[in-house]
């Protein structure tokens, strides 16, 4: 009994010792700037002069801004599109890859998850979408369909931003790594019960991947709610405001309008929105194996 208690105490000590360096780093470089930013959210911030306390005025100006609604709508639309269309692709590709022979996996993995510098990726997609010279319109014309305006069409623009995600992704590797821990006995047991391929995926593979999928889902939500670079470089937020996302608007406020206070207030709002989604997601999509 005594040994067990000290064992727990020892475990706790080890737990804190293992987390200490990360806690320190996260405190200084993760939270500190964020706390500072929260403080700025209640100031009129000047880069040179002393900031003035303005209370909730920044939040009020965010609330009164019609663009706030627009950018949140855009961002949520983007998130739904991107998670809906691209989230499951790497999961299934990884599962399917595991069926190939070892030699084929080696090559396929390289070719599927080949790293393309983002500079190149963006340039290529801009070329594909180009209304006059682009390949996609070339193909459409070739098969006798009317050309589309792609990024220049406010209704299509957001979809066009999401599509590259279908083939430019890296998270497949994560699933490959996780799939290696699925014990083969489970498949054998399912086989004995006469389960087919899809049923085995459903009853064995996916449940085993659940923690990793849950983690990746959190990350996808956060990532897509904060999408910035893609619309920033591909469309500059246009046409109109059709692809202006929350973080892009934050960036514009902070560094193009020099209104760090309002930018931060908007970031705080975004923080709470994402937080709510994550808490809900963790409630409905539990990551532990046993549930």
């Amino acid at each position: 009994m005594a040994a067990a208690v000290s064992g727990i105490g020892y475990k706790r000590a080890a737990a804190w010792a293992f987390s200490a360096p990360a806690i320190l780093c996260q405190f200084f470089f993760g939270w500190f700037p964020v706390l500072f930013a929260f403080y700025v959210g209640f100031q009129r911030y000047y880069f040179v002069k002393q900031p003035e306390f303005v209370g909730l005025r920044n939040l009020q100006s965010v609330a009164a801004d019609p663009l706030t609604v627009t950018v949140f709508q855009n961002t949520i639309y983007y998130s739904i599109l991107s998670i809906g269309l691209t989230f499951i692709v790497p999961i299934f590709v990884s599962i399917l890859l595991m069926e190939m022979s070892r030699k084929t996996i080696r090559w396929m993995m390289l070719l599927w998850f080949i790293p393309v510098a983002s500079t190149a990726g963006i340039a290529i997609w801009k070329y594909l979408y180009n209304p006059q010279l682009g390949l996609l319109n070339g193909i459409l014309k070739g098969i006798g369909l009317p050309a589309l305006k792609w990024l220049d069409d406010p209704a299509l623009a957001m979809l066009c931003l999401v599509l590259p995600g279908l083939i430019l992704f890296g998270p497949g590797l994560i699933y490959i790594a996780a799939l290696q821990n699925v014990p083969e006995e489970l498949y054998e047991a399912a086989e004995l019960e006469g389960a087919g391929f899809l049923r085995k995926v459903r009853t064995v593979t996916l449940p085993r991947l659940r923690p990793v999928i849950a983690m990746m889902l959190i990350f996808s939500i956060i990532g897509s709610m904060q999408v910035f670079e893609l619309p920033f470089i591909m469309t500059g937020g246009g046409p109109g405001y059709a692809t202006t996302t929350v973080v892009m608007y934050i960036y514009n406020l902070a560094f193009l309008s020099y209104d760090l206070g309002k930018a931060t207030a908007l970031a705080i709002v975004l923080f709470f929105v994402i937080m709510t989604i994550i808490v809900l997601q963790r409630k409905f999509f539990r990551e532990d194996l046993d549930t």
């Binding site: 996260q26 939270w31 700037p33 964020v34 973080v247 902070a254 970031a267 923080f271 937080m275």
Partner: peptide, 12 residues
């Protein structure tokens, strides 16, 4: 550990 992910890095 993951809370800071929810804050866009631009403001920090």
């Amino acid at each position: 550990f993951i809370g800071t992910l929810m804050i866009p890095g631009q403001i920090a």
